[in-house]
Design a protein around this nucleic acid. Structure first.
Lengths: 125, 125
DNA sequence: ATTTTGAGAAACCAAATGGTTGCGTATATT
DNA sequence: AATATACGCAACCATTTGGTTTCTCAAAAT
């Protein structure tokens, strides 16, 4: 049973108490848009809600989810709360992707070798 | 209304008829494990189901979802169907990540510059 | 001191998700 | 020809999700 791949992935990416992981966080298009918006600047829930056709409360729920995934920094200024992306957390996705990147880069090299070989054979004739 | 960021992302990543996108596909841990398993070798639904504590039909539903995202190649051999990952499709996630990678690489460079500056100031004294 | 504003929490709802069992069909095996 | 196997599809079910409205509380503004 090589279900351990599955098991270890779970364990590696999320402590037992944490229900959500970053992959669930980025599954929703609204949340992806939020992440882009707060990647370079801190924004309040109201400012974010202005960008979408949903209520502030709905945005608040998205923020809560992102927070549970430890994707956010927050700073309280008066009664406003500014949220900003913890950019380093996004590297987790990058790391997961690494195993696939290895494969496609490897295949690209193989294709490259093949083309070089074909070219040299052609030059000889 | 800068909700166009949101809108264009949807449009870019998925034709109007397609409900799912790759981000939804990788949101589920079982599906992520399946993708890893079929990244380097084609496998049948039954072979995949052996790796998990769920029924073959459940795996089949995951395969269906991955298929809708155009993540799979399939080859029928007799009554068996072998599924393999279309690795290129994974590049879509990589592309989306690119905008964040730019940010963290930029910040790393800034940190690097700062350290270099501090070091040279130290050398002068 | 009163009113307005920003934000989280709770209750609620329809739709989607991830699983199950059961069935039909095509291909192999005997 | 009869049986067994691999698969997809449909119906069903409990839980989760993404949204809403309503409420409460703290901080600003009047």
């Amino acid at each position: 049973m090589v279900a351990y791949i599955y098991a270890t992935e779970r364990l590696r990416n999320q402590p037992t108490f944490m229900k959500r992981d970053i992959f669930q966080a980025i599954a929703d298009p609204t949340r992806r848009a939020i992440l882009v918006l707060i990647a370079t600047q801190a924004l309040t829930p109201n400012a974010l809600a202005d960008q979408f056709d949903i209520t502030r409360q709905a945005v608040s729920k998205h923020i809560k989810i992102l927070n549970e995934c430890e994707l956010l920094k927050q700073e309280k200024v008066g009664r406003e709360i500014y949220y900003e992306l913890k950019i380093d957390k996004m590297k987790e996705v990058d790391q997961w992707l690494e195993q696939f990147r290895k494969i496609w880069e490897n295949r690209f090299d193989q294709l490259d070798d093949l083309l070089t070989k074909l070219k040299s054979e052609n030059d000889e004739s």
